[in-house]
Amino acid sequence: MYRIIFLAAVMVAACGDNRAAPGDAPDPVDGSVPDGSVAIGPCLDRPTELAGAPAGQLPCELLPPGFQP
């Protein structure tokens, strides 16, 4: 019985608080940049943009390291 109570206490302590800090910026949902155009920098510039079907322009994974348009 004591073991179960102890394990429950450990689990509660491990969970912590997953809420975002008030100052965190929202995650971007696409590859757009603030002015509305699509960035074409290498993938390192847009780590949240996952590979998907190309939409007319070269996807970032096909742009060479250090590429500057």
Binding site: I40, P54, G56, Q57, L58, P59, L62, P64, F67, P69
Partner: peptide, 27 residues
């Protein structure tokens, strides 16, 4: 190769990739 670059010029044997080369600004 998936794609070959010399500076801002690119080549691919894939015709679809070459279409995107033609429509990407600065490439």
């Amino acid at each position: 190769a998936l794609i070959v670059w010399r500076g801002s010029a690119a080549y691919s044997s894939n015709a679809e990739t070459m279409k995107m080369v033609g429509t990407t600004p600065g490439v």
